[in-house]
Amino acid sequence: MGQAFYVAGTGTDIGKTFFSSLFMAKYAKNHGFRYWKPIQTGLTGPSDTEFVQKTTALPDSFFLKPVYEFVAPASPHYAAKQEGKILDPKYLLNAIAKERKTNTLIEGAGGVFVPWTADYIAIKGIQESNLPVVVVGSTELGTINHTLLTLDVLTNRFIPILGFYLVGPKNELQTDNAETIQRLGGTPCLGVTNFPEQKLSPNDFISFANESFDTNRNVMESLLGPDDEG
């Protein structure tokens, strides 16, 4: 039996799509995981789905199409309003429920308090989806505060957290950041991966992911059931 999980960021452009690309590059083929971003905004440029697919060179079968797509690079509630469209949380949650027992990485839009509609925020949708969460934060200055806040609100709503993962530029703070968040947040650090120093081809990115992502297999082990093979 599969297990979908939700990738939540501590903010916008924090590294969720980079994390998702790493995960898909390393595990998609061996474990049958698919990538899905149900709400996509900012279609003035390449979508996150297109980015992950281009980065990993995985075929179409490893990707689900977004339920909602909007042009404006803004929160879903604003982007939908600009286009005169309606985002229905119930419809979206029904779509997510159908994938709950499949191996699917579900990437969220922005941070956990981003409004899907004028009166419905992302964290409510995460809670009602009943999916376990990986929180993605930055390696850089400010991540302790942002990540602890995100972990705290998820915990207070009894949302299952698999752990947190830091991504971003390599810096002298990142080890202490990870240790401090783990100690104060009471949530395991699943790993830290720095951005590659240069743009990589899909083959090179797959090699990079295999070498640099989830080196202790903490992410994958948190997803595997007792009857699953590593």
Rank of each mutant, 00 (worst) to 15 (best):
S47E: 02
D214H: 10
N216A: 15
A28I: 02
K16D: 08
G186C: 07
E99R: 15
I106H: 11
D60H: 12
M220F: 01
N218P: 00
G2I: 05
P132R: 14
Q198D: 05
G163N: 09
S201P: 10
V153M: 02
G45C: 04
R183N: 06
R217K: 05
I39E: 06
N103Q: 12
F213S: 09
R34E: 05
G45D: 13
L190R: 09
G186W: 06
H146C: 00
P115D: 04
I106K: 08
P73L: 09
V134P: 02
L58F: 11
L190S: 02
P115C: 08
Q40A: 13
T215D: 00
P132N: 13
A28H: 03
A80H: 10
G168A: 08
G142P: 06
F113Q: 08
G163F: 02
F205E: 11
K90W: 03
E221N: 15
L93S: 11
E221S: 12
L64W: 10
L190G: 02
Y68S: 08
P132K: 14
V153I: 15
I206M: 08
K85D: 00
T187K: 05
I159F: 08
N145T: 03
F205D: 09
L173A: 12
G108M: 07
E107S: 11
G168P: 12
W36Y: 08
S212C: 11
I123L: 14
V136E: 05
E229M: 12
T143A: 06
A209H: 06
S207D: 12
